[in-house]
Write a protein that binds this DNA or RNA. Structure first.
Lengths: 131, 131, 131, 131
DNA sequence: GTGGTCTAGACCACG
DNA sequence: GTGGTCTAGACCACC
């Protein structure tokens, strides 16, 4: 399954679902026409209340990532891929930019910041591989 | 004034105050023995609810960054500088790490992430100088 | 074929079928005694679930628009034409009335609403001719 | 109060709230900076569950009509007025266009449709005045 | 079976 | 006091 939830993370569960679906579309793991798992099924898989999943799905529909076909389920929209790549890049770039701005405001030197980035990027890739 | 508040940012106002005071101490802009502005004064300056400033000050006392002298106000603690540098590095590193982890999870390649970091770090330093 | 389905429209598919059959009867495109396509055939033609067609046909029987002759299929009822004209006018009038009421509630002026109606009615007739 | 709910209407309650707030902003009845009634208060006034109000307010935030200030409440956004007028016109025009298209597809003549519009527009204005 | 809406009520963070 | 998230469970329409 392409979604993993951390219920104790600061970002809300429904938002984790939304962005992970978008990431999966952006990376091609989900393709236009693919069905999303049903609300009830995903709720069981993630040990989460169905309403929480439904809320995430609602947002995906509203963002045009997903189309709902009555009585059938939700499907990746044909026009989703481009939008998701844009969204993904915007989200990721935004978070990185914010973190770096804070570092600069905190008066860290360019070298210190670059060191931190190097270290943490290595760690992030190592963790990702380890999973 | 060494503090700038963004009331519509995602991080709560009181936390923005706390970390910016710590940053100022860490960088030497505030030195042991310096007085903090009064709760009311700072609230006026930042256009913020006094309760919010009070909460931030409470946290600073709790963290040992600041000592209260009854009837006089709050003063940067002599032992604050080292702890603030530690806190600052931890906060900054944490945010950067989190942003990078998300980028990795979103399946961006190392090169793409490094590009974003380069661009955004340049921008951050340019903005800082411009202020 | 006299029916066109829009699966992503807000009005349910089975209802689109029902009202379009009624419209065809009201306008004389379908005449008493004419046969309806079989459930399976229409389902294939419209790319729709057979259950949906079956439900639409059930409603048409219930409304007396269509008579079933065992083993032969469904046929436009002799007494259907008048009732269908009534139904058609009621449906159409109802939708128009609802749309206009909303416009009035939204505080648009009589002139603004009349402008919209003129423009959209022209467009609707132009599109209809173009098909 | 500028909001009236019809719990038995086909359009969901939360959506009625959303569009009525937008209409109020578009017509100038609500102005940038004005506070919305609190979630709990409006829920009491409309005899509706607070979650339903919260959902409507969430959508308004998402649409940029309203800004949330933590701990204080929701306020009409400065940039809302223009967007709301656009939204209102789009919603109203869309519904009218849809109704007219259906009338044309049902083979009603231009005169018949214009008659219906005249009658129903009169009725709508009379009802509105009567309230 | 599917999604969508609504209610009820708990808990949290913020000001 | 404010909004925001989440759970639990009911009911509906559609396919």
């Amino acid at each position: 399954m392409f979604i993993q939830i951390n219920p104790s993370a600061p970002t809300p569960v429904y938002e984790q679902i939304v962005s992970q679906v978008k990431y999966a579309v952006a990376s091609g793991e989900l393709r236009p026409g693919d069905a999303l798992p049903s609300v009830r099924q995903l709720a069981v898989d993630l040990l989460v209340n169905p309403n929480t999943v439904a809320r995430a799905y609602r947002e995906l529909v509203r963002d045009g990532v997903v189309d709902s076909r009555r009585g059938l389920g939700l499907f990746i929209s044909p026009r989703a891929a481009r939008a998701c790549r844009r969204d993904r890049d915007a989200i990721v770039t935004g978070r990185i930019a914010q973190a770096l701005e804070e570092a600069v405001r905190a008066q860290l030197s360019r070298e210190e910041i670059e060191d931190i980035v190097r270290t943490e990027l290595d760690r992030a890739f190592k963790n990702a591989r380890a999973e």
